[in-house]
């Protein structure tokens, strides 16, 4: 199904400035996007939020990004998605921004001490090192 559709997408890309070319896959550009998507579905399945709630939050996030000058061509879409998910998780009292930051820093530390190519795993010692 790539043949015809990808040519069509290329035509659109030429016709509309900033229009991203669709490679016609079910479209995750990077694995983290799929992970963010999966977490959202899992939390929805648990009843943490409704789709109208999600749509409102994501819509607001995209709007804010556009106001900051994001071209919103679709390439940054999952960035907005993840930001909305972080906001949702905070709003629902699951984890606030400072907790998220602490874990981000811990993962950053874990990555630093892990030799290239080895699986990166989080340990207690990774926390509190900033």
């Amino acid at each position: 199904m790539t043949d015809r559709n990808s040519t069509a997408a290329q035509r659109v890309a030429q016709a509309v400035p900033g229009f991203p070319i669709d490679d016609n896959g079910p479209v995750f550009r990077e694995p983290w996007e799929a992970q963010a998507f999966a977490m959202t579905l899992a939390l929805y399945d648990r009843g943490l939020f409704t789709w109208p709630e999600w749509a409102a939050l994501l819509g607001a996030e995209i709007k804010r990004a556009r106001e900051r000058g994001d071209p919103d061509t679709g390439e940054t879409y999952y960035r907005h998605w993840l930001a909305a998910l972080e906001r949702m998780v905070a709003q629902k009292g699951v984890a606030d921004a400072s907790t998220l930051t602490r874990y981000v820093e811990a993962w950053d530390h874990a990555a630093d001490r892990t030799p290239h190519g080895a699986p990166i795993e989080l340990r207690a010692e990774d926390f509190g090192r900033g």
Partner: peptide, 25 residues
């Protein structure tokens, strides 16, 4: 020779760890 994760990868891992620890996912 350490590993590097992008900002987005870090944020996704952080969130997933928290949600897993809290039993949400």
């Amino acid at each position: 020779g350490g590993s590097e994760l992008s900002e987005m990868q870090l944020r996704v891992r952080a969130l997933e760890t928290i949600l897993t620890e809290k039993g949400y996912v």
